[in-house]
């Protein structure tokens, strides 16, 4: 299972753009999307994001996977906003979120994580003088990207284990082992990184 971190090799301009430019573009687009008010602006952002995704060649499978991850939240949020503030606000809020998820998918589909790491490291290097460890920040980004599909994988395994014991309706049987396994996996990953010397100060 994978939701983000799914790089799709290609030769489009989006693939060739430096990772730093794409990260910066993503940041600017995120600020602009949130700052622009009104449902019409959100639909424009959505259309632009969808067009970029189509151009990137990410494909339907990757797009569906990305959207499936936020589908439940989006539906609940849309219903809540419509009830509380009316449909224009609902379209604006949910449209912004979906547009940003699509843009993030464009970034990860056209950029190797290694390139994102390098861009973050290079971008933060000047901050070393004030104590920022650029390599560690970049590693934190990589681990976050990796953690999402890995955690979903653990959730599926835990749910199947509960089902196998006839406990599919027990929230406790699903939640407690899931939390324990996530913490254990984080501990193991930390130990593995430690053992590989990743994150050691030079």
């Amino acid at each position: 299972m994978s939701m983000i971190g799914d790089y799709r090799p290609g030769a489009t301009l989006l693939h060739r753009l430096p990772a730093g430019v794409k990260l910066l573009g993503m940041l600017v687009a995120a600020v602009a999307t949130v700052a622009a008010r009104g449902w019409a602006a959100s639909l424009v952002a959505l259309a632009v994001a969808a067009a970029l995704l189509a151009w990137s060649g990410a494909g339907l499978r990757v797009t569906v996977k990305a959207l499936r991850g936020i589908a439940l939240v989006a539906v609940l949020l849309f219903a809540w906003q419509t009830w509380q503030h009316g449909w224009p606000r609902a379209v604006e809020t949910v449209g912004d979120i979906v547009a940003l998820v699509l843009l993030a998918t464009v970034l990860t589909a056209t950029t190797r994580v290694q390139d994102i790491l390098d861009a973050i490291t290079a971008g933060l290097r000047p901050l070393r003088r004030v104590g920022v460890d650029a390599d560690r920040v970049a590693l934190a980004f990589a681990l976050t990207i990796r953690a999402i599909p890995a955690t979903l994988e653990l959730a599926v395994e835990t749910r199947q284990a509960a089902q196998a014991r006839g406990l599919e309706r027990s929230l406790r049987a699903r939640l407690v082992p899931f939390v324990i396994r996530v913490v254990a996996r984080a501990h193991e990953t930390g130990a593995a990184l430690h053992a590989r010397g990743v994150g050691d100060q030079d």
Partner: peptide, 27 residues
């Protein structure tokens, strides 16, 4: 001293095979 664990899943932290090996070489 290098160290490998029983379950490789916790050791593989990057999305692709090449990127995971490259992580070890960053230093």
């Amino acid at each position: 001293v290098g160290f490998t664990f029983t379950d490789p899943a916790a050791q593989l932290v990057m999305p692709t095979v090449a990127e995971d090996v490259a992580l070890s070489l960053r230093r």
